[in-house]
Nucleic acid binder design. Structure first.
Lengths: 333, 333
DNA sequence: CGCGGCGCTGCTCATCTGAGCACAGACGGC
DNA sequence: GCCGTCTGTGCTCAGATGAGCAGCGCCGCG
């Protein structure tokens, strides 16, 4: 574009957007035809001179969402603006995930859920009556049924209750010390039935944990801080439905994984609709592993994380935007 | 607005501005009529959810300009975005002033100019041939004609040259030590004629100085640092055409003022078109004094200064937006 | 010097958008 | 319980906008 046209475009944009004048008026003012004004405005937008932002706590970042979808082959993405306050951030993401769940079509009939702080927040924000007759199934082990209903069970129950449906809890710890114990409990009808139901869900909703010594799995006593440190040393970036993965979304410790009760990751990768809710600066590495290895079809996250994922990806971008997990060889349905 | 409508408005705004969908499409998507979408968008704009910014070095801030015009009763205002870099800021403001001068209608026939760094920058940015047959007159004393053509004279000459016209320099120092000397030089034909021409100009262009010991008047040797300190102690905020004013735009030291050669401030206040170019954080106080006392009809400044002026003014805002200088009793034309 | 291609300009026409209007349902006073 | 008012909704219509097209000047090439 010629220098004089550029200046003209800027002036036109000012009059159009700041002063809400009509293109015709602008034309008269600048001594050009209204068609030229229109073209100038189009050019200004193309060249990025015009920046439109929607400032609202519940706003989303649609361009970023599109970019995420394209780059990682996601079915959908939800990106909320990142506030500086971390509590506010979790609030927003949880609300967005709840909104998404509530508005999802077709409405899920069976929903597999994990547990954790993020999931609890999402459950809190779900509107009463978000579905009718939903079946909620826990997809990974947590605190047992006998314990105070306060963590894993409560989250699943709440989602079911608000969805006017029923809940099926997984009555098992998350991780066993001995493989034999795990295998035997898995073969028990009460557990096997739940696992079967979990595998049959049409939709999944889960969060992700950071691989660090203050993760929920450590707090619950399934792992010691030292054990997690070892996992980190072996490349763990975080956990998904109780299973630790590395930067490529691979299981870090197969032995540990075999002792973990719940849906396995390959099953999760094969489903048609799985929603991961992962936000915050610490969770970037897990988020990256999850999206780039095809663990989810829908990602709910914040703007900063989304940008980071896209920036990461830029540096090793494949020319035709092939989603990374396809390069990694996602198993066929 | 109802909560649900607000959310709807945000979604509509996202689809409209981020995704450039038509209102009709959005209506179909959100399950509402296109008129409702239109109203939602209008509301979103009203409530300030939509923020449009034009990012370009030569962009202006039209809403701020309008606010300045209204608050201070200016004929016009030019506000450029403030970059973090101060050199860049002066560059932008000078360019904007030059643009303004070049585009001004009716084209000035006689232009009264002051001198200083700002004015020199403006002169530099004026396009060759910005006017045809302009008459430029110096309105305040500067370095004498005999000195190296490099400061005051050069600026005026350059403006005239680029405007295909002629220049009339004021062959006098800015400030005399003794009143008698000043009076006698003023009565000399060579000076009196210039002063008369200066008073008869149809347009004025000037900068402003900060009242501090490293001002141009000190560097040129007209005042000592100590003298300026005294002026500051007496309330001086800066100088305009060589004359020190306080926060209300009043002459700080009448005795000093009488020894200063050039157009006096009351004459400046009476003219129909006077352009003040004042930018930068240090010059806020002078800028405020200038606009609120009606010394200029057009202000060219930067965004930060403009905002500061408006914020200042807010606190002591008169209900009907009466320009301040009218409250102070501007002398009738 | 003439010709074909290219890019820009201003136009026609279809679509999109906003202002004004009439109607329906909600609310409150009587 | 009834009626006036008032807000919100969908409509008509005119004005604003964008897509596509023909004309024109500029440039390079033969």
């Amino acid at each position: 574009m010629i220098e004089s046209d550029e200046l003209l475009a800027v002036r036109a944009a000012e009059l159009y957007y700041d002063e809400t004048k009509t293109q015709d008026e602008i034309g008269a003012l600048l001594g050009i035809t209204r068609w030229k004004v229109g073209r100038l405005l189009a050019q200004a937008r193309e060249l990025g001179y015009i920046r439109i932002e929607i400032v609202h706590p519940r706003a989303r970042r649609l361009p970023l969402e599109r970019a995420l979808r394209e780059r990682f082959g996601l079915v959908d993405a939800v990106v909320v603006p990142s506030p500086s306050d971390s509590t506010e951030l979790h609030e927003r993401v949880a609300r967005a995930a709840a909104d998404y769940l509530g508005a999802m079509r077709p409405v899920p009939r069976t929903l597999g859920v994990s547990w954790g702080r993020t999931l609890r927040d999402v459950a809190d924000h779900l509107p009463d009556g978000w579905a009718t007759g939903i079946s909620v199934v826990q997809i990974n082990g947590g605190v047992s049924l006998n314990q105070r209903v306060g963590t894993a069970a409560a989250t699943a129950a709440r989602i079911a209750e608000k969805g006017r449906g029923d809940v099926t809890l997984l009555p098992s710890p998350a991780i066993f010390e001995r493989l034999e114990t795990k295998l035997s409990i898995e073969s028990d009808r009460t557990v096997a039935d739940v696992l079967r139901a979990a595998a049959a869900a049409d939709t999944y909703l889960y969060g992700a944990g950071v691989a660090s010594s203050d993760s929920a799995l450590v707090h619950s006593g399934y792992l010691t801080a030292a054990e997690v440190d070892v996992l980190v040393a072996r490349g763990a970036v975080g956990d998904v439905v109780g299973r630790y993965i590395d930067g490529e979304g691979m299981i870090v410790d197969p032995t540990l994984d075999e002792r973990t009760v719940g849906l396995d990751l390959e099953a999760l990768r094969g489903v048609t609709r799985s929603i991961a809710v992962i936000a915050g600066a610490q969770k970037r590495a897990v988020a990256r592993a999850v999206v780039s290895s095809g663990l989810c079809t829908v990602l709910v996250t914040d703007e900063a994380t989304a940008s980071a994922l896209l920036a990461d990806h830029d540096s090793l971008n494949s020319p035709q935007h092939t989603p990374e997990h396809e390069l990694l060889g996602r198993n066929a349905p």
